[in-house]
Design a protein around this nucleic acid. Structure first.
Length: 270
DNA sequence: CGCTGACCCTGACGGC
DNA sequence: TGCCGTCAGGGTCAGC
């Protein structure tokens, strides 16, 4: 589920409900996430005020005076706002209960997500080696061009590597490469700077567009309106292998790069 | 250092 | 209806 737009949409949905509030209680029903949730975390957070909620890459950063809580949604995680008590269901692993009775509930069937605490003054390891945010002005084609010289890795896994640029997951990498007209299996080190500029702009475009529309699949994190994702309807290539290219009509091809499905058009992408 | 593949886990889906 | 293989939006790690 979560790529950068979904995480950002989650952040925007949660922030008004939790920033400035104090943690009344943290309940961990199942600590077996990507890394075991620290048994001391409930005691660490109790009574602490959430100063801000930020995002870095696909991490949500809950800032407290005493440190920060890094939450990652993994492949299948979600955080939603409960305004009133509700019995926990399957895979509802963690509740963050606030002083006004609002509950932030974490659900994650595959348990690839994580809750990690980093005390003030310590460096959050997961953030150490991250590349630029794709929507920052500092991120551009020149950056990708420089990073890719001498590399033989295919361009798709290259842009999905968070040390090059963060937040570009399988869906948006696939879409951005189509928009930029670049084959996903082309060696990144053999792509000209101008084409990387097109790619950087395409990445910004698809991510911005998806954020505007609230992410591709996560719509029920706060309002519970249950509306299905809308962005899925405007995907050019992701999940459409065998179907006609929306630009030229030729059947889209499927291949696997870095264990991830990739779809592209042999005519439109070179 | 760069790259590949295995792995963590559950659920949904299609074929038989 | 049930069983089985395959696949899924992410990230880390070992090994070559």
């Amino acid at each position: 589920m979560p790529e950068l737009p979904e995480v950002e949409t989650t952040r925007r949905g949660l922030a008004p409900h939790c920033v400035g509030r104090t943690v009344r209680k943290l309940t961990v029903r199942d600590a077996r996430l990507r890394w075991p949730v620290d048994a001391q975390l409930p005691a660490t957070l109790r009574g602490m005020r959430i100063r801000s909620l930020d995002r870095r890459a696909k991490y949500l950063l809950f800032h407290f005076d005493t440190g920060q809580l890094l939450v990652h949604l993994g492949m299948s995680g979600s955080l939603r706002v409960l305004r009133e008590a509700q019995a926990p269901g399957k895979h509802d692993h963690i509740d963050l209960l606030l002083d006004d009775g609002v509950c932030l509930r974490y659900n994650d069937p595959r348990r690839f997500g994580s809750f990690q605490w980093f005390a003030a003054g310590t460096d959050p390891g997961p953030l150490a080696a991250l590349g630029p945010e794709p929507l920052d002005e500092a991120f551009n084609g020149a950056h990708l061009y420089r990073r890719s010289r001498g590399r033989r890795i295919a361009v798709k896994p290259f842009i999905m590597d968070a040390s090059n640029v963060v937040g570009v997951g399988n869906i948006y990498a696939t879409e951005a490469l189509f928009i930029a007209g670049i084959r996903p299996d082309r060696a990144s080190g053999r792509i000209a700077e101008a084409r990387f500029e097109s790619l950087a702009q395409a990445i910004k475009q698809v991510l911005t567009n998806a954020i505007t529309q609230g992410g591709t699949t996560l719509r029920d994190f706060v309002g519970g309106d249950g509306k299905p994702g809308y962005f899925a309807q405007q995907l050019f290539v992701y999940g459409r292998a065998g179907e006609p290219c929306k630009s030229c009509g030729r059947p889209l091809r499927h291949l696997v790069l870095g264990q991830r499905a990739s779809t592209f058009c042999v005519a439109c992408q070179r």
